[in-house]
Amino acid sequence: MTRPRLTLLDTVTVVMVVVIATLAVWVAVAGPTGPIAMHFDLQGRPDRWGDRREMAGLLAFMTAMTALTAGAMSWYARRSDDPSRRRGLEIGQLIALLAIGGTTAILWTAILGQSSVGAGAEATTGWTMALMGAIFVATGAFLGRVAPNPLIGVRTPWSFKSRRAWDRSNRLAGRLFFWLGLATLIAAPLVPQPAGFVTLTAAVLIAAAWSVFESWRVWKSDPDRQPF
């Protein structure tokens, strides 16, 4: 079965690349002339400032990441003759779009929106935390169905040597990040900062470490695993 020249996901990829690139050009040409907050402490206060050229460069980097990551997943899918693997790679493309698009939204709201020293506004940490929760929910909902690839998912030496380890570790990671994201969405407007971000960071690290351990555990017990 021949894959269409341009799928819906490919169209979304192109649109996202154009949108983020347009934002980068706009910031470079007509963005704020004053300092732009480029980094925030755990309490949401700006602790490093840059200018519009730095912000434009950051958005240009996100443009390249979208084109390279989502484009590469599309390329892998086109080369696959296995319909099941093709669908799994397309899911990886979707995850890349969700993650990068959400990250760009966080940059736009949490950095560019707090662009002036004179404004004296703190970063909207609750809103940023909610966006992060939404990214975790969206990516976690699909992560368990992504096919083996070098860009998206729980990519460990053991998951690449065992399809069973790949599937189980990614399903676990998907469940963990989905429920973590849901809890983050609920807690974002309620939890005090910086306790919220500290707790979220610790939870993400635990979920990632657990998923890596799961890939090793399943590989070790898989009779069909490939040796190193």
Rank of each mutant, 00 (worst) to 15 (best):
I20A: 00
A21I: 10
W26N: 13
V27Y: 03
V27Q: 09
A28D: 13
V29D: 10
A30Q: 12
G31K: 01
P35Q: 08
P35R: 09
P35F: 05
I36C: 00
A37Q: 07
H39L: 08
F40D: 03
Q43P: 04
G44V: 00
D47P: 01
W49T: 11
G50L: 02
D51S: 08
E54D: 06
M55G: 05
A56F: 08
A56L: 07
G57V: 10
G57C: 10
L59T: 08
F61E: 09
M62W: 11
T63H: 09
T63S: 11
A64R: 04
A64F: 04
M65K: 12
A67K: 08
A67F: 09
L68N: 12
A70W: 00
A70F: 03
G71C: 10
G71I: 00
A72W: 06
M73Y: 01
S74C: 07
W75A: 15
W75G: 15
R79L: 05
D82N: 13
S84A: 15
R85G: 02
G88S: 05
E90C: 03
E90N: 13
E90K: 14
E90S: 05
Q93N: 09
I95W: 00
L97G: 00
L98W: 06
T103R: 04
T104G: 06
A105C: 14
I106G: 10
L107I: 15
W108C: 07
A110G: 10
I111H: 05
G113I: 07
G113Q: 08
S115W: 06
S116N: 15
S116H: 14
V117Q: 11
G118A: 12
G118I: 06
A119N: 14
A119F: 12
A119I: 07
A121D: 07
A123I: 04
T125C: 07
T125M: 12
W127N: 03
T128S: 15
T128E: 10
A130D: 10
A130G: 09
M132T: 10
M132G: 13
I135R: 03
F136P: 01
F136Y: 14
V137D: 01
V137I: 12
V137C: 02
V137F: 02
G140F: 00
F142L: 08
F142H: 13
R145D: 05
V146G: 01
V154T: 04
R155T: 01
T156I: 14
W158Q: 00
S159H: 04
